[in-house]
Amino acid sequence: MSQSVIGGNAVAGGVGKDQPLGFNHRPSPSRVRLDACEAKDQPAFIGYLPYGFPNAEGSLQAIETICRHGVDLVEIGLPYSDPVMDGQVIQSAARIALDQGERIAGVFEAVELVAACGAVPLIMSYWNLIFHYGVENFARDFANAGGAGLITPDLIPDEAGEWIEVSDQHGLDRIFMVSPDSSQDRLKTVAGNSRGFVYAASRMGVTGEQESISASPQTLVETTRQAGADKVCVGLGVSTGDQGAQVGAYADGVIVGSALVHCLLDDSGRRSRDLQEGLNLLAAKSDELSLGIHTARLS
């Protein structure tokens, strides 16, 4: 009896009604946008904001603001009760979002908004949230909303078998992370299993704004490319247009999170500021970063 392999599983007798979904062959949405930026000799501006902060409606307005002010890809964060890899700014935003009753099901409205604005919608989430929602259910709902891919800071490819299979079935990007202490074998494993781009963390430790950017991210980008990655985007620490230009000179994309979230927090860093004031600051910061990043390779 003949067999065909569909979605990574052998199916006796070819196509049958109980077979799993086949592979989705749509091009990587993240890669398509990064290629479009590269064609203009520009790095991509990738902005992060958490869904539900300062509240559900306010977060949609904030996400729309960065889309209208130069962001190419949007990382929509899923607030988590124990965000061990996030700095104080994002932790504060996550706490406020959770206090406002943020729920994972609502994030798909934000995904639809980003897609409608013409940017590429990504979700960044600790894996436990996806696991409890249901990996197949999440992938289906995310893809139906127009989602492009998932960034999983605490999920390594070695433990991502279910996600790798399901993301292939739904045509979703898999964005795994590397850091300056990643071994050559780890870099190869991440490069071989990522789809869209590899997320290069510019330093070890939690996220947050930095006063200066060291040379280590450039070395990490180079070694990750040597390990087989086609696109490498750098995150964790960029907070000014000048820093964005510095990183954009060698990276395929520059990822900014805390500097954007900071605009929506008051001076104490623990409470959200007046929304309109925050949106104005957010628009100005996005414009600054967009200019710096998108002109990084002009001489």
Rank of each mutant, 00 (worst) to 15 (best):
P79H: 13
D141V: 01
N144K: 13
F131K: 13
A119T: 02
S59F: 06
E109R: 15
I130W: 01
A62P: 02
C117W: 07
G149I: 01
R103V: 13
N144L: 15
S125G: 05
A94R: 00
N144R: 14
A62H: 07
F142I: 00
F138A: 11
F53H: 05
I151Y: 03
A145I: 06
I76K: 06
V114P: 01
A119S: 12
M124Q: 03
I66V: 13
Y51L: 11
L78K: 00
F53E: 06
F131S: 12
F131M: 11
A143E: 06
V120E: 12
L73Q: 00
A110P: 09
D72G: 11
A110I: 09
A145V: 12
I104D: 09
A105P: 00
S125I: 12
G58P: 03
F53C: 09
I151P: 04
V84P: 10
Q100K: 12
Q91K: 11
G58E: 07
G47K: 09
P83T: 04
T65V: 12
D86M: 02
A97F: 05
D141S: 10
G118W: 13
Y48Q: 05
D99F: 11
G52V: 04
G146E: 03
E57D: 12
L98G: 09
I96G: 06
A119E: 11
Y126M: 09
L60P: 00
F53D: 07
R95A: 13
A94K: 01
I123M: 15
A56V: 11
Q100M: 13
L113F: 02
E136L: 01
D99T: 14
G146M: 08
G118K: 15
V107L: 10
A148F: 10
R140V: 09
G106Q: 07
V107R: 02
A110H: 06
V107D: 07
R103H: 15
I96S: 03
I90A: 02
C67N: 01
S125T: 08
V135N: 13
Y51R: 01
Y126L: 13
F45Q: 04
L113G: 04
A116D: 14
V89S: 04
V107S: 06
T65L: 03
L113T: 05
G52C: 03
L60T: 04
E75Y: 09
G47Q: 05
A115H: 12
L49C: 14
L73F: 08
D99C: 15
P121V: 03
G87S: 08
A110M: 04
I123F: 11
Y80K: 10
H132E: 15
L78A: 11
D99R: 15
A56I: 08
I130G: 00
E136S: 09
G146I: 14
M85I: 14
L150M: 13
F138T: 05
G149E: 02
V120Q: 08
F142V: 07
A93I: 08
P50R: 04
G52F: 03
N55Q: 08
N128L: 08
E64Y: 02
V89D: 04
G77N: 10
